[in-house]
Design a protein around this nucleic acid. Structure first.
Ligand SMILES: [Zn+2]
Ligand SMILES: [Zn+2]
Ligand SMILES: [Zn+2]
Ligand SMILES: [Zn+2]
Lengths: 158, 158
DNA sequence: GTTGACCTTGAAGTGGGCTCCAAGGTTTAA
DNA sequence: TTAAACCTTGGAGCCCACTTCAAGGTCAAC
């Protein structure tokens, strides 16, 4: 409506509301090199072009994929040059998939460990143990010791 | 061998080496309330009883389960009182399992999204796009826009 | 008696992605 | 005219589990 500086320019709060992030986050993206320094109004207010909204959407999409801001900045640099983005994007994605597989593996094993512990706990007859010397509740291996000679704690808490 | 202060007392470096953490971490655990303040030698050196090693092992085991230090501190408090630990342990475990399930779900969906993107990327014929206007590589929906009227980026990067 | 490995303390730094604050200047509506 | 609602900046704070630093004191070996 104003049209003085540029058509449809957005002040920082307007952009923030449009894309659903805080104004602080937008200024942070600028410092981090994800958003180029926008034009300023005579009073020094940031005036973003409408395309900035797409840029922030892109950032948000990348974040949903688990990419870090530094990686997103790399992608945006490529995007700005107009070069084919497939190569960097593909290697980023593959790296991230490998990370995810490792993490999924770790969490899956962890989950089954926790489940095993919780199951043991549930059926336990449980007299109070000696203070400071757990007491694997309901376990027959209370007296077992680890290879360095210490008493075992809860199962898997060696 | 010394036996002056206490039998088999460990200096901080000895305990650290025995359990495989840094001396700084041990002092940090003390500040955080996970390790009780140990006796001191005349020179002010920390002298840990051998049971401190078990305590640290317990901490490490809990950490492997993904528990935070504050939660571990709660468990240790119970352990020190000699009360039956099943109740707090069980609710901690259940809470953690729920967290894990949510996280596993999230990561699994993420992984399949990334895989889909990587697959699209691979078979793409790819002319360089216009700068700043990606260019969903190899996608037929280049012209699609999101519900707020902006151009779509890479698939799933809306 | 001197080197060097150990120990002490409090404070500050790390990383990631922000958030919050103070102390101002600007714009807009009443 | 003045209040409210915006905007600016630099810098600090947050979370977590540490690590690193600075500036010393202590203890063993040679
Ligand atoms: Zn391409
Ligand atoms: Zn042990
Ligand atoms: Zn019990
Ligand atoms: Zn949009």
């Amino acid at each position: 409506m104003t049209g003085l500086q540029a058509p449809h320019a957005l002040k920082v709060g307007e952009l923030a509301k449009a894309v659903g992030v805080s104004t602080d986050a937008l200024r942070y993206y600028e410092r981090a090199g994800l958003l180029p320094p926008p034009d300023r109004s005579p009073a020094g207010y940031r005036l973003y072009p409408p395309s900035a909204a797409d840029r922030v959407h892109f950032i948000q999409g990348c974040q949903r994929l688990g990419l870090r801001l530094a990686e997103i900045a790399d992608l945006l640099d490529v995007r700005d040059t107009g070069q084919c983005p497939c190569e960097p994007a593909e290697s980023l994605l593959r790296r991230r998939i490998v990370e995810l597989d490792r993490e999924l593996d770790r969490l899956t094993r962890l989950r089954s460990d926790l489940q095993a512990m919780a199951d043991q706990l549930h059926g336990a007859d449980c007299p109070d143990p000696d203070p400071g010397t757990w007491c694997p509740p309901g376990s027959k291996n209370m007296k077992e010791v680890t290879d360095d000679g210490h008493q075992k704690g809860l199962p898997l808490l060696r």
